[in-house]
């Protein structure tokens, strides 16, 4: 897919983004920009506003104020579908899978393919095509994948996580938002998922960037190139990984700045 681009503009730029719930400032005047091939770790305590930031970018939440630019082009998303059409793929903290569907049906959730001709006009699904494409995508993945035909409800937490992340990878896009992709995973599972995420960015030829949220600093540290730290809705630090230490990051998260 091709998008409108302004030369030399960053892939993503956010200016003064805020989201208020009544008197709660879930997100307060946040600005930063993101270049292609960057994997940014977004850190912060519970309630710091990480999920709110992701939802503002994915169209799930409408910001109270602020602007979002993709490749220099101003975007306003009022639904998740609009953000998706601009190449923003999101893995939500609550995964957003339909338990009673299998993997292909979840991959194509909201983007179901209908058949050609008159059947398509009646909205008849092309299940075989969706299955074929999902299978091809799944087989190309590094992670050992659960059975394609199994319904999500029969899967473990780790398998569900893999399905949700693979769905985002399946559709590609230019900005991948991962909210707690390794939460509730065992050590081995988390490592596999992180490896898969890293491979996803480096394997695509197109411009792509990623924001990864995690409570687990080791997980973020292992794959990201830069760290953003939120505290009480405000962006308190924006650090290249090469120029910081774990201690400094923890200090920013907790507010005990040295």
């Amino acid at each position: 897919m091709t998008y409108v681009t302004v030369p030399d503009a960053p892939l993503l730029e956010i200016r003064g983004l805020s989201k208020h719930y009544g008197t709660i400032r879930a997100l307060d005047d946040v600005s930063f920009s993101l270049d292609r091939d960057e994997i940014v770790g977004l850190l912060g305590d519970n309630g710091a506003g990480k999920s709110t930031l992701v939802k503002c970018l994915s169209g799930a939440v409408i910001p109270t104020a602020g602007e979002v630019y993709l490749h220099g082009d101003r975007k306003v998303f009022s639904t998740p579908a609009e953000a998706r059409d601009e190449g923003i793929e999101t893995v939500y903290q609550q995964l957003a899978l339909v338990d009673i569907f299998d993997i292909p049906a979840n991959f194509y959730l909201g983007r179901e393919v209908v058949r050609d001709g008159w059947r398509g006009m009646l909205g008849i699904l092309n299940r075989r095509l969706m299955r074929k494409r999902a299978r091809a995508a799944v087989e190309a993945l590094p992670a050992r994948f659960p059975n394609l035909d199994a319904d999500i409800e029969t899967m473990s937490g780790g398998q569900r996580q893999v399905v949700a992340i693979s769905r985002a990878g399946f559709w590609g896009g230019r900005l991948l938002l991962l909210d707690e992709p390794t939460a509730a995973l065992g050590v081995k599972e988390a490592a596999a998922v992180l490896e898969m995420i890293g491979a996803m960015v480096s394997s695509t030829e197109t411009d792509m960037a990623m924001i990864v949220i995690s409570h687990n600093m080791e997980h973020v540290w292992s794959i990201c190139t830069r760290l953003l730290i939120l505290r009480q809705g405000r962006l308190v630090a924006d650090l290249p990984k090469s120029e910081t230490t774990r201690q400094e990051v923890v200090a920013h998260i907790t507010g005990a700045t040295a």
Binding site: I100, F101, D102, N147, D149, A150, D151, E153, T154
Partner: peptide, 13 residues
């Protein structure tokens, strides 16, 4: 539980 049209082939399903 109870999916509409998932073709059943996996053991669980």
């Amino acid at each position: 539980r109870g999916s509409p049209g998932a073709p059943a082939a996996g053991v669980m399903s």
